[in-house]
Amino acid sequence: MGLVPKTRYDGVAMLIHWITAVLMIYMVFFGEDLMKEGEAISKLPDPTGATFQPSIHVSIGTAILLLTLLRIVWRLTHTAPPYPATMKRYEVIGSKSLHGLFYILLIFIPLTGWITFGNFSKYHEIMQQVQLFGLFTMPQPPFIANYKELHDLGSNAAMLLIGLHVLAALKHQFIDKDGIFGRMLPW
C-alpha cells in the first residue's frame, strides 16, 4: 500500500504561520504608532509610561524574528506539501519567490529596527529602559546607525507582500479551487 501524499502543512507550521501573520499585520498597521506615542510621552514633564508602547513594539518585533528563525528551521526539517499539478510554472515560481521575500523581510525588518532603536534611544534616554517581553532591558545593538528609512521601506514592502499573498490565496480558493488555501488552515 503506497503512502498518501501530504496535502497540508503540519500543525506546528500552521501555528507559526498564523501567529507570525497576526503579529506582522498588527505591526504593519500600528507599530509606528507605538513608537510615536512613546516618544511623545517621553517629552512630557512626567514621562512615566513612555517606554510601555515601545516595549510592546520591540517585543513583537523580536517575537516575529524568533518565529521566523524557528519557521526556517522547521521548514528545512519538515517537507511542505507539494503544489497541485494544476498550478502553472510561473505560479509556483511566484509562490516560492514571495515566500523567500517574506523570510528575508521578516528577518530584515526586526534587525534594522533594532539597529535604529540604538540610535533612537541615544537621543531619547528614557527609551534605554524599554523592556523586551517585560523580562529585561532591550540590549543595545553592537553599532548604532539610523536605518529608519530601511526599516520603513521593509515595512512598506511587507504590506505589499501581505496584500499579494492574501490575493493569491483568495484566487486559489475561489477561482482556481485547487486546495492551496486549505493547506495552511487547521480545519
Score class of each variant (00 low, 15 high):
F181N: 01
R183E: 08
T62S: 15
G163W: 05
P5L: 12
P84C: 03
Y26V: 14
I64Y: 06
V166C: 00
H124P: 09
I19T: 12
L23A: 15
L160T: 14
P82V: 02
I126A: 04
L98Q: 08
Y123L: 06
L3V: 13
F117W: 06
M1D: 00
F102R: 07
F136G: 14
L67C: 15
Y83L: 03
F30R: 03
T112G: 07
H17F: 02
L167T: 10
L164I: 07
P82K: 02
F143T: 08
H99G: 05
H165F: 11
S155Q: 12
L101I: 14
W74M: 07
Y90D: 13
A63D: 05
M14H: 03
Y147M: 14
R71C: 07
G61C: 08
Y90T: 15
F136D: 10
R89A: 03
G134Q: 05
L185N: 09
R8I: 06
L164N: 06
P141G: 01
I72P: 01
G113Y: 07
N119S: 08
G49T: 03
I41C: 05
A85K: 11
M24R: 09
S55E: 14
T137G: 11
M159W: 08
G38A: 09
A168R: 02
I104D: 08
E91M: 12
I93F: 10
P5D: 09
L65M: 13
L135I: 06
P81E: 00
A158R: 08
A63I: 07
Y9T: 04
L135V: 04
V73S: 02
F30I: 03
L167F: 14
I19P: 01
L34Q: 10
P45E: 07
I19M: 04
W74S: 06
F120C: 03
E125F: 13
H17T: 03
G100V: 06
W114P: 02
S42N: 01
L66D: 14
T48K: 08
M24C: 13
E91I: 13
T7K: 15
A168D: 01
A80R: 03
P81Q: 00
F174E: 01
F102V: 13
H78V: 06
T51M: 14
N146F: 10
